[in-house]
């Protein structure tokens, strides 16, 4: 088995007496989609925030391609190749779609202050290359018509695609998606699923926190189930679905039945 892209090792965080995440371990293999699920209050979002650096852990380790990242601030982790999207979309409203994607390339774009001030050839080439790359991404996520529009004016589904494209612009090693299907209508969800499928086909590693169970079951290679801050199950969608602990803790009889029915 290849070395894990992301390795979460005995991760714990306590808020006062409450262990919001309690000794959780899992790993994401390169090129796979890993799901993180659990009922409300299970610690999914806390785990997510621990991984991307918004909360400091009380104990445990997080490694990206074998390198400890748990002491780094969020921008340090992003510079090492950890990209994320937000549950409540966070746009740079006044920027055009194209400018937003160029901003997404921040960590990889070699432009010194001096070169920018003097408009040196190295600066011009870097900007031109960034613009070309932004266009390729725009076409890839299907925002061609909107390239020069103000990103704050886009419809919700397009903003979600733009946010994913912005995260991809930095050519991340791992893409963290925080409930990407939240608030979407069925056709938007379908389009999103197709996009993520394509990414998966291109070998992008992803960690997905999501409430929409059909979505998770169809997309993920591996799933980790949390409840009350602890890991209660792990495995392929089929295995997790069949785990009585999961059914009891999370899915409930009604959802379990609906999953058995062919989609």
């Amino acid at each position: 088995m290849s070395a894990p892209r992301l390795d979460v090792d005995c991760l714990t965080v306590r808020f006062g007496g409450l262990a919001a995440v309690d000794d959780v371990s899992f790993s994401v293999a390169p090129g796979t989609v890993h799901g993180l699920i659990g009922p409300n209050g299970a610690g999914k979002t806390t785990t997510f925030n621990l991984i991307c650096g918004l909360i400091a852990p009380t104990g445990g380790a997080i490694r990206l391609d074998g390198r400890r990242i748990d002491a780094l601030p969020s921008w340090g982790r992003a510079q090492l190749g950890l990209a994320r999207t937000f549950q409540n979309i966070r746009m740079f409203n006044d920027m055009s779609v194209l400018e937003t994607l160029m901003t997404g390339m921040h960590a990889n774009l070699a432009e010194s202050l001096l070169a920018s001030l003097l408009r040196l050839p190295s600066f011009r080439h870097a900007e031109r290359a960034a613009i070309d790359k932004a266009w390729a991404l725009i076409d890839f996520v299907g925002l061609t018509e909107a390239a020069h529009r103000r990103s704050g004016d886009l419809p919700y589904g397009d903003q979600r695609r733009l946010e994913i494209a912005r995260a991809l612009a930095g050519e991340p090693r791992l893409l963290l998606l925080d409930e990407p299907a939240a608030g979407m209508n069925p056709s938007e969800t379908q389009a999103l699923e197709a996009l993520l499928e394509t990414l998966k086909g291109r070998g992008v590693s992803m960690l997905l926190v999501e409430h929409d169970m059909r979505f998770v079951m169809r997309l993920c290679d591996q799933i980790t189930v949390l409840n009350f801050g602890r890991k209660i199950s792990e495995g392929s969608p089929r295995e997790v679905r069949a785990d009585p602990l999961v059914v009891e803790a999370y899915l409930g009889a009604k959802v379990a039945r609906s999953l058995e029915a062919p989609p």
Binding site: S74, W75, A78, M91, F92, D94, T103, H106
Partner: peptide, 13 residues
């Protein structure tokens, strides 16, 4: 516009 999102893109705040 959004400091949190800028940090998540690698901007050293």
């Amino acid at each position: 516009e959004d400091e949190l999102a800028a940090g998540a893109l690698g901007v050293d705040l």
